[in-house]
């Protein structure tokens, strides 16, 4: 029988929930013998939208772009270190654009068959404007999606992983 999950992608956005998702993805990758990819997207589309909406000044756009580049390095390094501590190899990548579209593109590019995301809202609004980027990715991606919940349990699993 072929492996049910061969390639896992975890999306990291700097939230605690996404770090928990990364820990779970590492646990799954090691347990299933799957290849692991981690992605941070510098949300340049949102930056442009905020300038267009006059919420950001031009100078602010540049400042936040630099901040996002630094966040990307910091959080991807964190995932690399987490994976290394458990003897798991991870391909950590940064891209730029609209978050959900970049996630979709990476899923296609790497032939990912499981996308792991941090916990999303438990509140279901009828307003489309309140679907954030993670939810948009969850709804539109072609592969199976796993939402990492129960931070304490995942922390335990991660600690137990040898």
């Amino acid at each position: 029988m072929t492996k049910p999950i061969r390639r896992i992608l975890v999306y990291v956005d700097g939230t605690e929930q996404s770090v928990t998702a990364a820990e779970f993805a590492i646990v799954l990758a090691k347990s299933l013998g799957a290849d692991l990819f981690a992605l941070y997207v510098v949300n340049t589309r949102a930056l442009s939208e905020l300038v267009k909406a006059h919420i950001f000044l031009d100078s602010e756009q540049e400042e936040y772009h630099r901040d996002l580049d630094e966040d990307a390095e910091r959080y991807l390094n964190h995932v690399r270190n987490l994976a290394r501590s458990k003897g798991v190899s991870v391909t950590a990548e940064r891209s730029s654009g609209a978050v959900h579209q970049e996630i979709l593109a990476k899923v296609r590019e790497h032939g990912v068959d499981l996308l792991v995301l941090g916990e999303i809202s438990q509140i279901r609004s009828r307003r489309d404007e309140l679907y954030n980027e993670t939810e948009r990715a969850m709804r539109s991606v072609a592969c199976s999606v796993l939402i990492a919940k129960n931070e304490d349990r995942i922390a335990e699993l991660f600690e137990e992983l040898e």
Binding site: A46, L50, A53, F56, D67, E129, L130
Partner: peptide, 21 residues
């Protein structure tokens, strides 16, 4: 916080979308 620009920007973008209505 200064080290969480991603969530900050996404929240602002959600508000911008919302306020179009």
């Amino acid at each position: 916080p200064p080290d969480q620009s991603g969530p900050h920007i996404e929240a602002l973008a959600e508000i911008a979308r919302l306020c179009r209505s």
